[in-house]
Design a protein around this nucleic acid. Structure first.
Lengths: 228, 228
DNA sequence: GTCTATAGTATGATAGAC
DNA sequence: GTCTATCATACTATAGAC
């Protein structure tokens, strides 16, 4: 079992790296097993299929990651100092900070960023399911710090926030070049977080678009607020 | 030549659709040629390789698209009413509106959104080159409407804007579900633009993060402003 | 310019010995 | 749990007839 675990871990580590570097579809089991120095058949033995391996790679890091995000939210709420900026940081901080931990966290973060735009139905389902608890915990908190924002509008904006986050996490060359040319260390997540938080806070609490504002004032509030 | 053009166009249309639906790497030339009802060898004859086909698919729509964005910027500047909101709309409007034109524009937009996170070096190079003129035209305009923002900070924020845009363009299920559940027509780009503009405007003109603000006031302005 | 045929290679998955 | 060997299938690309 200790030997087996070792093989399993080696497969997970290598798969994570290659998936992040080349994408899921472009990475073959052969590339993984040869670089992990395990037998080709080991993948199917331990994970059943390539799809099973992908899910295992994601789950291994996503679960502790989301636990950490919720832990930070808990702490914010207990401290009685729940601010928009703090909330944003609790949400985007852990994934971006993970990119700093020596052991492949950065690779995983890039992989995670990619899953948002990758084309695979089983992936979307898996991610949605894996993030269910996270979403149901953060949504009310955002509502609390943005009480003036209609519910429907808030959801749009939270998605825009996820858009920024996943783009940054995907970490394509442009982002690296940008950071480097600005004298910033592109591998320092704090640098990026420091810049993202004001941008996101500004966006989330921006005034409503004129048309919507007007609709609200004219009493179409019910429709606009919705009833999730 | 008319027959050839026909075949070429049919390949381009089908490739665009399949690339957007399944991703570049997951789409085979066989799938394309069989659905386009052309011979397998036609792709290599007309485009040289799969890579050549991908570039052709992108270039066909990207060039007129970026011309339109620049045309709108020209008009804004001539009108003497260059606002941040107008500038944002000139930049994000055309790609998002393209998703409404009946003839496959929506597919292309999703494909374009995906290219930002897709893993292929030739793609990044091609997109960077294709967007060069666009960027050099829009950057000074953004500087003009956001004069108080240090240059380095502006570039970060423009990238965040691209992040939101590409996430929305990638148009994954979540976005669709969100729009539908909010009573919005997920296929109406105006609906999305109306929501994105205030968010992006709010983000772009948000106050500087405290640390940076302080650095500026302490005279470290040179370093922070840079000299790009 | 379009076709068939095929070379040459890679893939995911499994059977069966150890 | 690990291995080799292999099946069945897919892929990109090209050669050569028409």
């Amino acid at each position: 079992m200790s030997e087996a675990t070792d093989t399993k871990e080696r497969i997970l580590d290598t798969a994570e790296r290659l998936f992040a570097e080349r994408g899921l579809g472009q990475t073959s089991l052969r590339q993984i097993t040869s670089q992990a120095e395990v037998n080709l058949a080991a993948v199917n033995y331990h994970f059943g299929s390539k799809e099973g391996l992908i899910k295992a790679v994601l789950a291994r890091r996503l679960e502790p990651l989301n636990r950490e995000r919720i832990r930070r939210l808990d702490r914010l709420e207990r401290s009685g100092d729940l601010t928009l900026e703090g909330l944003i940081e609790a949400f985007i901080g852990p994934p971006l900070e993970l990119s700093r931990d020596g052991a492949g966290g950065g690779r995983f973060v890039r992989l995670m960023g990619r899953t948002y735009t990758e084309h695979a139905n089983f992936l979307h389902d898996h991610m949605r399911q894996a993030n269910e608890g996270l979403v149901s915990r953060f949504k009310p908190a955002f509502r609390e710090v943005l009480p003036e924002l209609p519910k429907g509008e808030l959801y749009w904006r939270l998605h825009f926030m996820v858009g920024v986050m996943s783009y940054v996490m995907a970490g394509n060359d442009m982002m690296q070049v940008l950071a480097a040319s600005r004298g910033a260390n592109p591998d320092d997540p704090q640098e990026i977080i420091r810049r993202m938080v004001p941008f996101l806070a500004g966006g989330l609490q921006a005034p409503l678009p004129p048309e919507l504002q007007q609709a609200l004032e004219e009493g179409a509030a019910e429709a606009a607020l919705g009833s999730d």
